[in-house]
Design a protein around this nucleic acid. Structure first.
Lengths: 209, 209
DNA sequence: GTCTATATTATGATAGAC
DNA sequence: GTCTATCATAATATAGAC
């Protein structure tokens, strides 16, 4: 997490800037070398400082990972929350959120891998860093409940199973897109197009009467 | 790939045994430390040999990864091929293959990550190592064609889009299961249960007349 | 095919001077 | 908060003796 105490003096500002710079460079590194390729020494090199100095800002390499993880979760959630604003239909909200979530993931690949694949040996995100992911579940549940209320889905349309279908569709499409269509633009992807079928499948599983 | 020339003399046998041992230990390491945690030096340590000796069997670390990748692909395909044998219904064959594929992945986690997530920086599998994955596509296409012929699915039931639905379901369920239900037994998984809905979704998308 | 020795490079982290 | 110096370790890979 970022500093608990917000400082307003110049020293605090400067410090915050350095922290941001560290995280920025860390992201670059992950993008270049893979998620596991983040190295303190290289971060130090790039921001023009000696490695020991980094320990004044983060107590360990894992602490940097954890901050990136927490920020990633928040950004991902924000993207989805923004996408559903002003959408009345429950099912449409589901699709919008799915699309926004995937778009964010594709645009923030290394971060997305850190969030969803846990590829760093020995790194376990802290409890607090997980908070946004719970809110994401709520976001989908709310949308599905609305869909049921609006008669778009029948009984069970907001059940855990329905939530599962939404999650699986998103994870599956991402996974296939990344593994099998590297470099294919979003609009052309065979897999991304499948995402739009989610409402159809939800209706098949929980038919409105 | 394994040696192109099969040797039958004792020296060749011994050599093959060493190769197997190296790959075995490599798998153990990946399971313990994460896919990126494979290290030549540790492999050497565990099989009781000095690191340079390994270069008599594999020209580089990536070569070990590549052999593991190729074998993993083959084993994954075998599991699915076996599962569909003797199944008459096309749709049932799809489900059987999906289940078998996922079961294999769960039982061979580090290998599955290597196959489907590509988490090792700088490692690109060779062309030949990809061969089985093309055969897997054929396996699914054959099953879907049969489903269409049998009237289980309507027109388009063996299209690329239908193939996509099958692939997405499998990848999505795996992904969610691994990320959100670590340690939950296969039979209890909310996500694994969703796999059985694939035929239903296929019917919804390509209704038989 | 095995070893020793070595090159080369890197890593995360700490102590302590300034 | 920065640095130098250093610890302690690790890694892949090659040369060359046996």
């Amino acid at each position: 997490m970022t500093e608990a105490v917000e400082r307003t003096d110049r020293r605090g500002l400067r410090r915050q800037q350095t922290i941001e710079e560290i995280l920025e460079v860390a992201l670059d590194l992950m993008a270049e070398r893979g998620v596991g390729g983040l190295a303190l020494s290289e971060v130090a090199r790039r921001i023009g400082v000696q490695p020991p100095s980094l320990y004044k800002y983060f107590p360990s390499l894992h602490a940097i990972y954890d901050e990136l993880f927490a920020r990633g979760q928040r950004a991902h959630l924000d993207a989805m929350s923004t996408a559903v604003q002003g959408v009345e239909s429950g099912l449409a909200a589901v699709t919008k959120a799915q699309e926004a979530g995937m778009r964010w993931a594709m645009a923030n690949l290394p971060l997305a891998q850190l969030l969803f694949w846990r590829p760093v040996p020995g790194f376990e995100p802290s409890e607090e860093a997980f908070e946004p992911s719970k809110q994401m579940v709520e976001l989908f549940r709310t949308a599905l409940r609305r869909a049921v209320r609006q008669g778009e889905l029948g009984p069970g349309g907001a059940s855990q199973e329905a939530m599962g279908i939404v999650a699986v569709a998103m994870a599956g499409v991402s996974s296939q897109y990344l593994a099998n269509e590297p470099g294919v633009p979003w609009e052309r992807s065979v897999y991304v197009r499948l995402l739009a079928r989610t409402p159809e499948f939800l209706r098949a599983a929980f038919p409105p009467r």
